[in-house]
């Protein structure tokens, strides 16, 4: 059994990391600050910029994917545990499955970019 405080510690550590990584991810969209040199908000979403983002900052996106998913899903898990405390096992399993599925989809995207 993993202690609840262990999840909590990871929740807070991922929160600290998210400030940095999500901050970077959002700064990509801000003209003037963007490491992709996007001139407008829309331009930062264009194919050329996006694929450059994957090539140069793939590791940032991969980290963001894992910590974002963990933090968000563990937060949802906390809420669900409050909502239906009796369904504890089901909640834990569902959250774990969602984590694995979405992490897999995300990593596939990043891998496809780096591979091709």
């Amino acid at each position: 059994m993993v202690k609840e405080s262990t999840w909590s510690i990871i929740q807070y550590i991922t929160a600290i990391l998210l400030i940095l990584f999500l901050g970077f991810h959002l700064i990509e969209r801000i003209p003037g600050l963007s490491p992709l040199q996007a001139a407008t908000y829309e331009e930062s979403l264009e194919y050329e910029k996006v694929s450059r983002a994957y090539d140069s900052y793939g590791w940032v996106l991969a980290t963001l994917l894992v910590i974002g998913l963990f933090h968000g899903l563990n937060g949802l898990r906390g809420m669900l545990l409050e909502w239906k405390p009796e369904a504890r096992t089901v909640i834990n399993i569902v959250i774990l499955v969602v984590f694995i599925v979405f992490a897999f989809v995300g990593f596939t995207t990043i891998y496809n970019h780096l591979a091709g």
Binding site: V50, S51, L65, L76, G106, H113
Partner: peptide
Amino acid sequence: SGAIIAFYLLAHIIVTSYTDDPLAWERIL
């Protein structure tokens, strides 16, 4: 706000999975 971002992230992962194909990404945008 936490719930909004968490659900957005799930949708976001699906949407960005189309970025490897320029045409598909253009359609999405």
